[in-house]
């Protein structure tokens, strides 16, 4: 293992904080913050999955929300039929069945769309993955029985032996352990021969091909793994929100996921987790700051301005600022300070 680098320390401390904080929130009667952290961790899992492609493969997927959606509907659709009848072959509350369905469906979707998408490069790849994502979005939109645009409420969460996902803390711990495992998988993958080929293809695809590697196959495998991890995150998200709608698959959500990875710092282990943390927490923080500012101004102008709804303004400025002045996302900032 050797001595930890500065980045290593930050990663360790951050992950420890994520492990300790939610139980504290729970015991101090702040269940909302448990929810917030759960959402953060679940999205971080998807972001870690995306980062395999984006950070290490140089393949910018703009359609990853589709996998999350597929994973979530893999919980919702069997549960819907178990509650309301019909489609007996799929009706089930069984968590393992739903999870298997989520993984299989997202892997299959990744395999089929990836096989086509990987024929293209660069920004064309970005757009074709978005096209596939939008197709999945409109597919679920067209399913009248599962609510179409209105979405589907999951009345019963996935049933697993020994543990109950109805308990917010249990659900959180499952998500947290999954995140750690996902980060570990990514770390192992990236440092394996497979990861080397993938990164080699990112740098210079032709050279890797000349060296005798079928990079297309490597990239396709990476795409399937990445999509399955996102599908797994979807399985958790469905269980967490107990409400799913086609909106979860929309390109804006794929965009957010992508922004999380870039903001945190692509091709780092902690980056996606950091990015998703910022994305989830920033709304609460900025609304708080704007509200505080509003209160400060109120005596001066005699009325509340309702500044809270304008929190997008400082957020947008912050994103521009990060891109202009920080190289390599927030992890880049840390790295530079570490030197």
């Amino acid at each position: 293992m050797g001595r930890l680098s500065a980045i290593g320390w930050v990663t360790l401390v951050f992950m420890l904080a994520l492990a300790i904080l939610p139980p504290i929130f729970m015991w101090t009667g702040q269940p909302f913050y448990v929810d917030l952290t759960t959402r953060l961790v679940v999205l971080a899992i998807a972001a870690v999955g995306l980062n395999i492609l984006l950070g290490f493969g140089g393949l910018v997927s703009f359609g990853h929300a589709a996998f999350i959606g597929i994973g979530a509907y893999a919980v919702g659709i069997p549960a819907y039929h178990a509650t309301w009848g019909g489609m007996d072959f799929i009706a089930s509350y069984n968590g393992f069945f739903q999870l298997a369905l989520a993984l299989a469906a997202s892997a299959l979707f990744a395999l089929v769309t990836g096989a086509i998408a990987l024929r293209t490069k660069g920004v064309y790849f970005l757009m074709i993955t978005m096209a596939f994502g939008q197709m999945a979005y409109y597919f679920f939109l067209s399913l009248d029985i599962y609510g179409g645009d209105d979405g589907l409420t999951i009345d019963v969460r996935s049933e697993l032996p020994l543990i109950s996902l109805d308990n917010p803390l249990t659900l959180y711990l499952v998500a947290y352990v999954s995140l750690v495992v996902a980060m570990f998988i990514k770390h192992t993958l990236v440092n394996s021969r497979f990861g080397m080929v993938l990164q080699g293809a990112k740098g210079n695809n032709e050279r890797m091909v000349t060296l005798g590697f079928n990079t297309y196959k490597y990239q396709l495998v990476a795409y399937v793994i990445s999509g399955s991890i996102a599908g797994y995150a979807g399985f958790l998200l469905g269980n967490f929100t107990t409400f799913i709608s086609p909106d979860m698959l929309d390109w804006t959500r794929s965009g957010e996921l992508m922004f999380m990875v870039i903001l945190g710092g692509a091709s780092t282990v902690l980056g996606p987790v950091l990015g998703s943390s910022i994305f989830i927490l920033i709304e609460e923080v900025l609304k708080g700051v704007m509200g505080w500012f509003d209160g400060l101004l109120e005596p001066l102008i005699g009325r509340e301005l309702g500044l809270e709804v304008y929190w997008h303004l400082p957020f947008g400025l912050m994103l521009i600022f990060v891109v202009l002045f920080v190289r390599g996302g927030l992890m880049g900032l840390l790295k530079r300070r570490g030197k």
Binding site: Q30, P31, F32, D35, D150, G151, F243, S245, D247, M248
Partner: peptide
């Protein structure tokens, strides 16, 4: 203007 965001806002009102 979105079901999912509305549910989140509702959960926050209830829990926080």
């Amino acid at each position: 203007f979105k079901p999912e965001t509305g549910k989140q806002a509702t959960d926050k009102l209830l829990k926080q």
